[in-house]
Amino acid sequence: MKDQYRDPFAVEQEEWKKRQWKNRWKQLLTFSSPIFILVLWEFLSRTGLVDARFFPPPTEIVGTFIAMSASGELFHHIGISLFRIFSGFLLGVIPAVIIGLFMGLYSPIRHFLSPLIMALMPIPTLALLPIILIIFGVGEVSKIVTIAGSVFFPVVINTVAGVVNIDRIYLDVANNYGANSKHFFFKIALPGALPVMIEGIQMGQAIALLTIVAAEMMGANSGIGYLIWTSYNAFLLKEMFVGLVLISFFGYLFSLILRGLQTKLLPWR
């Protein structure tokens, strides 16, 4: 009964404050999980509960990271890996988008090419690495081609799906208002397929990172993958962990960049 005398605005303000506090708590949780794992790792490693030779404490890995950066060697590996990822990524994404748009818009092209794509897609590009090395040699080109090959498939498949799933009514509108094939391509198919296409690019980005590490392990003498592999062989596990953390960092960074790009490119969503 006493409730009647309370100020409704004050009640709602109270509620709002509670919601704010809950949100802050959730944000804190997001930050806390990696920190929790690191602290736990540090603790287990320091106390000898896990073998510090295999799991060196994070603070020591950071120390190794600083030492490696100081020598400049680390940046050479990072630079060459990033160069390979970016060139391979572009070499895969650009043709995938173009071919995907054509396949989506023109069903004869789609029917002609889709069995080829379906048949080639399940083959891991890494399994083709020996052949790629024979064709393109041990230089940069073979790594770039390997990445391009693995990025191509998710992007082309998502682009086709993006175009095919554009609501028919927009095609009717374009037809009714006299759009020619160039308009269909740039005003309807490309923007209409973009949301699904970007999902494919996100996937391709993740695959590019997986591929570069493996490719550099198998046939390279530089790069983050090479660093991981040689450190492991020389039992320099701190150096190996530095490589692993770098991969994880760049994976996270690229997803953030792509997500930012997504909101920029899709203001209408």
Partner: peptide, 17 residues
């Protein structure tokens, strides 16, 4: 042009202003 159509509500293209 000979004709233009007023489509149903869904006919407004979402990626154009």
């Amino acid at each position: 042009p000979l004709q233009s159509m007023v489509f149903q509500e869904r006919g407004v293209i979402p990626w154009l202003t």
